[in-house]
């Protein structure tokens, strides 16, 4: 019987789900409804700091993996059965977004 590679993506989905459940409400509130937040200096400071970089990468990357995984399943739920190619595209998209975030963070010093 063929082993599924879901464990990799499910772990990322789970991590993203957990993170978004914990910090999602506060983050969205801050970016959407609190204009004082995220001033340039503070944002830059955060993005320059090692832990800060990690936090930003985690939020962007894991949110993407979480969201894309569910998006893919939702298509299936709506009766749109995407093949393995498109499935890879969803995860690939999340991976690309994560990579982009990592590159950007590396450039901020």
């Amino acid at each position: 019987m063929k082993r599924s590679n879901k464990p990799i993506f499910w772990s990322l989905f789970g991590a993203g789900g957990m993170l978004s459940a914990l910090v999602g409400p506060a983050l969205i509130y801050k970016t959407g409804f609190s204009s004082q937040a995220l001033g340039y200096e503070r944002a830059l400071l955060l993005a320059q700091n090692g832990f800060g970089k990690l936090a930003i990468l985690a939020v962007i990357g894991l949110f993407l993996f979480h969201g894309c995984h569910r998006l893919y399943h939702s298509l299936h739920d709506f009766g749109i059965h995407v093949g393995p190619g498109l499935k890879a595209a969803f995860h690939g998209f999340a991976a690309a977004g994560t990579l982009a975030a990592a590159v950007l963070l590396a450039h901020i010093s």
Binding site: M1, K2, R3, S4, K6, H73, D77
Partner: peptide, 14 residues
């Protein structure tokens, strides 16, 4: 576990 591990094992569940 061979059944569990497949796409149509536990991974069919959302």
């Amino acid at each position: 576990m061979e059944v569990v591990n497949t796409e149509d094992g536990v991974w069919g569940c959302t």
